[in-house]
Design a protein around this nucleic acid. Structure first.
Length: 379
DNA sequence: TCCTCTAACACTTTTGAATCGC
DNA sequence: AGCGATTCAAAAGTGTTAGAGG
């Protein structure tokens, strides 16, 4: 994909596309909701706060789906994929490469709380991943998505037919991503333009916008002992948040989901399932985009795991070698993956099958092509 | 010295239990 | 008794920034 310079920002931008928030693959179409908001942030260089205890995204991921089989059950998941192999720093009002990326933290997948649910449910209304949280705590016990600060990521959405999260790994799945959702993980906002945009759009930030507390010099900080309220909050958080589980609606489906949680959370080291090996030149494109479409080699049959026969009638595009859409009108990336083998290890797959590398890309330092898909499933 | 991260802060929004009325 | 609507306190979440630490 060509990159162009945006005179209004310090970023190298992908060429704007007329249709950037929707993509149809096979019969399944995924559309990014609040795409305009995402684009607003993207034009500046989206930053997402990550904290030790987990922080929600803003804008949050919200999508809509169509083309699903109404009566087939689906599991919808999202994970975060490194954009490139670099660490960044904010210097003189722009992002600069600050070296090689840190080793990838444990990969976690956030499963939509409604999963599994029939296609009719998913198509009824848009899906919000509002409650998904990002953390920089590699020892996190709450199931939040673990990211490195000052690294770039983008969310990847997975749609798979499955009657329970436990059977996800056996079925085919389709993957979608959206160019405008790329972001830099930070522990504190770097670009003031992002701060202003967030305050303008995020209702929770009103306390700072309208409460007159922007005059921080007035703040009294005599000591740093936690106030009683905060202590109570922390205590409750400890009591109410069992590791790996967040509160869920009390439906029979989610009860089933909960039962399967433990096994799903077992680390599954699948081989390379990521389909985007990127050619990155940090000196040229500081706002590195994973959005360049490449052709992926799906001929690696060892990676494929037969879906349960029960799901066969509903399969629409599984295991297909999809021609990638190379015209700029298709901004959303989407791939069809074979399911990861439940017993496979990254090492095994690396040796046996190689990675889905772009033909022109051989020795990418990030090596995030090893990024597993379903190591964790958490909500 | 520079850079990154953490925690405390004041405020708003969301959540959910309790209550009420039909 | 059951259900939906309303109320309200508690919980959750927000960006900023001083200070700690590497």
């Amino acid at each position: 994909m060509e990159h162009i310079s945006d005179p209004k920002s310090n970023l190298s931008m992908p060429r704007p596309t007329p249709v950037a928030d929707s993509y149809q693959q096979g019969c399944i179409r995924m559309t990014l909701e609040n795409a305009d908001l995402w684009k607003s942030f993207h034009s500046i260089g989206t930053e997402m706060i990550i904290t030790k205890h987990g922080r929600r995204m803003f804008p949050h991921c919200s999508i809509s789906l169509s083309g699903l089989q109404p009566f087939a059950n689906y599991v919808i998941m999202v994970d975060m994929v490194p954009v490139d192999s670099f660490k960044y720093k904010w210097k003189k009002e722009q992002w600069e490469v600050a070296g090689k990326a840190e080793p990838q933290p444990p990969c976690r997948t956030y499963m939509h709380p409604d999963s599994p649910a029939p296609g009719s449910h998913w198509m009824k209304q848009s899906l919000s991943f509002l409650k998904m949280k990002l953390t920089n705590n590699t020892l996190d016990q709450h199931g939040h998505i673990i990211l490195h600060s000052m690294h770039r990521y983008y969310p990847r959405f997975h749609v798979t037919q499955a009657d329970s999260p436990y059977t996800v790994r056996w079925g085919p799945f389709q993957t979608f991503s959206f160019p405008e959702t790329t972001f830099t993980a930070v522990t504190a906002y770097q670009n003031p333009k992002i701060t202003k945009l967030k305050i303008d759009h995020n209702p929770f930030a009103k306390g700072f916008r309208e409460g007159g507390t922007h005059s921080h010099s007035k703040r009294c900080r005599p000591n740093r002992s936690p106030p009683a309220k905060r202590v109570a909050l922390d205590r409750k958080a400890l009591c109410n948040s069992p590791p790996g589980l967040q509160r869920m609606p009390s439906t029979s489906q989610t009860v089933e989901t909960e039962k399967n949680q433990a096994s799903t959370q077992q680390s599954l080291k699948a081989g390379d399932l990521s389909a985007w090996a990127l050619e990155q030149d940090p000196s040229e494109s500081l706002h590195a985009e994973p959005l360049e479409r490449h052709e992926y080699d799906y001929s690696c049959e060892e990676q494929m795991v037969p879906a349960s026969m029960a799901y066969q009638p509903y399969r629409s595009a599984d295991y297909a070698r999809f021609p990638m859409h190379l015209n700029d009108a298709d901004a959303a990336l989407t791939t069809v993956h074979p399911a990861p083998h439940p017993l496979a290890t990254a090492e095994h797959n690396a040796q046996q099958h190689g990675y889905y590398h772009h033909p022109h890309h051989h020795s990418h330092a990030a090596d995030w092509s090893q990024y597993p898909l379903f190591s964790y499933s958490c909500w």
